[in-house]
Computed example of a mutant assay.
Amino acid sequence: MSLDPDLAAFLELVEANVMSGSKPSMHELTPAQARVEYDASTQILDVPGMAVESVTSISIPCRDGQHIHARFYKPIKLAEEKGPLPVLLYFHGGGYCVGGLDSHDSLCRSLAALTPCCVLNVAYRLAPEYRFPTAVYDAQDAYQWMLSAGTEYNWDITRIAVGGDSAGGTLATGLCLASRDSSWPQPVYQVLLYPCTSAWQNTESHRRFAQGYLLEATTLQWMFTHYLRDAADRKDWRFAPLEASNLSGLAPSFLILAEYDPLIDEGIAYADRLKAADVSTLVRIYPGMTHDFARLGSIVNEAYQVRKDIANALANEFYPNRNNC
């Protein structure tokens, strides 16, 4: 399928602004400047979040004595749900350098409302102030904290899913690997939106979509240069899950990919590896879409559709006996 026309028009506008010099590319900015631009663009590109019962700010302790922030979305509870609610632990995208609680507020609200389930959106620490593997440790610490805090927040810790987009998807699936290897309770499900999975960005899709499709090759390497300490980190499975020697024993997965995303080839490769390891894996490629389309609610209808699709997949896992799921 050709690129979605509304998305194509948006990308043409972005390219025109870059060419005119009125709006620099992300890789031309400092990380601090890029974070401001990224969050500001969210107000234009995405729609307001759906209604939930409450939103609570949470501080999560980390292994190095510091704390990270998180935002807890409590859904409007279904009448038939009397006990603790299932919860999605979510890690935002942004190449480990940008993004946070505000940039993914609409997405997390929607998933909480549509599933319905609790959602905990984690603001792991960003590079270059905090390089690899700090974000990995923050994700693990958030999961461990969630397991211990379930009673306080009325979470059903036997029904925890993990999810994330782009770099956040890498953190989510890496958490499943760490849980398996550390004998922690395995999440019941993993939702991976166009995750980064490869040590090197040398696939055909990276060449084909290197420029002009929202996530550009120069921007991706700018992010990874800020995040990684050295070249050896690229071969660490916590950065590149395709480097893991064994993917068996992981939670069932839902991989969401975009047809015009440079990451699509490595996403397909990761899905194939999961299937080969007998991990139940659903793959859905959204035609005409680019990277990050789930946050483009003001531009493409598929942003709402993918949220519904994720919510349906989560509901099927969280509420297997409900007739309408």
Rank of each mutant, 00 (worst) to 15 (best):
Q211V: 13
L78Y: 00
S183K: 10
A113T: 12
W222H: 00
S182D: 13
G297R: 05
L11V: 00
C196K: 02
E53W: 04
D46C: 01
F10T: 14
G288D: 04
Y137T: 03
P24D: 11
A40Q: 14
E302P: 00
R295E: 01
D236A: 14
S20E: 10
A113C: 12
D272V: 10
Q66V: 08
P61C: 03
S182V: 01
A113D: 12
L193D: 12
K23R: 12
M223T: 11
A79W: 00
I68H: 06
A142L: 06
E37D: 13
L7C: 07
L3N: 06
G249V: 05
A8P: 00
Y213N: 09
V300Q: 09
A210I: 02
E266T: 02
G212F: 09
V188C: 14
L101K: 02
A244K: 02
L250V: 03
P86S: 09
S110N: 14
N154T: 14
T56N: 12
Q33L: 13
P241D: 00
A16M: 08
W222E: 02
G168P: 04
P48G: 08
N323H: 14
G168E: 01
A231W: 07
K74M: 12
Y137L: 01
A127K: 07
S20G: 06
R284H: 15
L242K: 11
S110Y: 09
D102S: 15
Y270C: 01
T219I: 02
P24F: 11
D64G: 02
L257G: 04
G100C: 05
G94I: 05
T219E: 01
W145Q: 05
Y260D: 08
L263D: 05
L120D: 09
T30E: 05
S183M: 04
T173E: 11
T115Y: 06
E37L: 13
A277D: 12
G174K: 04
T281S: 04
A269N: 11
C176L: 09
A51M: 14
S2N: 15
T203W: 10
V136Q: 12
L192E: 03
L101M: 00
R35M: 10
I60V: 10
Y130M: 06
P128L: 03
F239M: 13
V87H: 03
Q140I: 11
L89D: 09
